[in-house]
Structures are given as C-alpha cells and as structure tokens.
Amino acid sequence: MAPRKEQEIFRATLGLLVERGYEGLTVEGVAERSGVNKTTIYRWWPSKAALLAAALIEADALAVDPPDTGSLRGDLEALVREISALLTESPSAEIAVAALGAAVHQPELAEATRRFFADRLAREQQVFERARRRGELREDADPMLIMDLLGGAVWLRAVFRGLPLGDGFAAEAVRSVLDGAALPAHPA
C-alpha cells in the first residue's frame, strides 16, 4: 500500500477513535472516511484492533524520533519534551487519552497499547546505547525503568492531574531521575 494512502487510513482510524471511542470505531467507518474500500483495509489488517495497533505505532501524528543531542541528559530532556507535546497538543493528546481509556476495557487494544510502548522503547534504545558508549550510563541501568519514570511523570502531570508542564519540567524530571532528589547524607 502506498505510504500516503496508509497515513490517510491511520488518520481516519485515529480520528474515529477520538470521536467515537473504540466501540464506535469500525473498519467500515475508516473505509468511508479514508476513501479506501473496506476489503482493502481487511487485506492489510484483519481486525479493527490490528488496524488500530498499526495506526498507533506507524501514524505520523504519534511519531517520535529519538534525539541525539550528544549527551544522555540532553537526549532525555528532548524525549520528555516530545512526550509532553504528544500528551498536550492536538490531535495526539486526544488520541493517547482515547487509546488508554479504551485499553482498560478491551484486551485486544491493551495488547496493541503494549506493542505501542514496546515499539517506542525499542526506538529509544539508541539513546541509552550511545550514553553507555560515552560512559554516561551504568551498564546495569534499566532503560525501561528510566523511560517509565520520565514518561509516567508526564502522563501523571499532564493527563491525570491536568497540570501544565512548565518550561523547566523536562530538565527537572530528568535531573530527579538521573541525580535523585535527596540531599547527600551528612557524616555524623
């Protein structure tokens, strides 16, 4: 399938998810909105869950390119800013919230969401590999835990608490994860 047509299908899929929820998302609706025959869609994706999974991973609206600023701290701050934009700017914010909400009640969508986050972590691995080569990261550091702490902070602050992410949020979140928040212990 042509990449442009595929993106039209993904835009239609994600738009209908936001507008109608997972229950209201249908392959027929995607076909109508994208101008593609539903048999063509079914040829590429056997179910609406498979279609939504592909849209979440491959849609331009949710694309994130791992940064290369030359430092782990800079890369992580850039990633936090990218995650923040995805969760606070339209249409990606609405897509993320709709997908998360639907995943709670739909096992097939929960699996698609897990694949989405696995894909993101796989893309982010290069940030950690470069940091290890530069000697900035312990060999036993867990990239998934680091990204869960940073991404989780963005999700909690922006989506669940509904609070703004100020200009210094990315730097402070990364500082807290990399350097900790406790003061050094004073010798007695």
Rank of each mutant, 00 (worst) to 15 (best):
A170V: 04
A131G: 09
A110Y: 05
A78M: 08
G21R: 12
L79E: 14
P91Q: 05
T39S: 15
L86Y: 05
A171W: 01
L79C: 06
I95Q: 01
M144P: 00
E136K: 08
A99E: 02
R73F: 03
R114Y: 11
L100W: 06
R175S: 13
L16Q: 15
A96N: 14
W44Q: 15
R115K: 11
T40W: 07
T113R: 05
T40A: 15
L145P: 00
L79P: 00
G180M: 01
L150W: 04
R157G: 01
E28G: 15
V80Q: 03
E139G: 02
V154F: 03
L86E: 08
A99D: 03
D75E: 08
V80R: 03
V177S: 01
G101S: 02
A170R: 03
A182L: 13
V18C: 04
A153C: 03
F128M: 03
E111M: 02
L56H: 10
I57F: 05
V27N: 04
A173V: 01
G24H: 11
V104C: 02
A110M: 13
P46C: 07
A131Y: 09
A98H: 05
A49Q: 10
D68Y: 04
V127I: 15
R20L: 13
H186S: 05
D119T: 11
K48A: 11
D179F: 00
L17Y: 12
A99N: 03
V27S: 02
E89R: 15
R123K: 15
M144R: 15
F169A: 09
A131M: 07
P66K: 09
V80K: 08
P66G: 09
F160T: 12
F10E: 12
R132L: 07
L72Q: 11
I41N: 09
V174W: 02
P3Y: 04
A118P: 01
L121R: 12
A102N: 08
R130A: 13
V27P: 07
G70I: 10
G24D: 10
W44E: 14
E32L: 14
L100S: 10
E82I: 00
R114V: 11
R133A: 15
R161D: 13
D142T: 06
R157K: 14
V36Q: 13
A12S: 13
A122H: 10
A173C: 02
V174L: 00
R175E: 14
P164Y: 02
R175G: 01
R73P: 07
E58W: 01
T113C: 03
R33W: 05
S47Q: 09
R133G: 07
P3C: 00
I41R: 12
S84H: 11
A2Y: 04
R138D: 15
Q106T: 14
R130N: 10
D68S: 14
V127M: 12
I95K: 04
A12Y: 06
A50K: 13
R115G: 02
K5T: 15
L137N: 09
Q7Y: 01
T88P: 08
L149V: 10
V18H: 08
S71F: 06
A112F: 01
N37W: 11
L149C: 14
V154I: 09
G180K: 01
F128H: 05
L150V: 06
R138F: 05
I146N: 02
K48S: 12
L145G: 12
L165A: 09
G168A: 07
A112Y: 04
G168K: 02
E8Q: 14
A61Q: 15
R81K: 13
A102W: 02
A93D: 11
T88E: 07
A110P: 00
M144W: 12
T13L: 07
G151N: 04
E108N: 06
V30F: 09
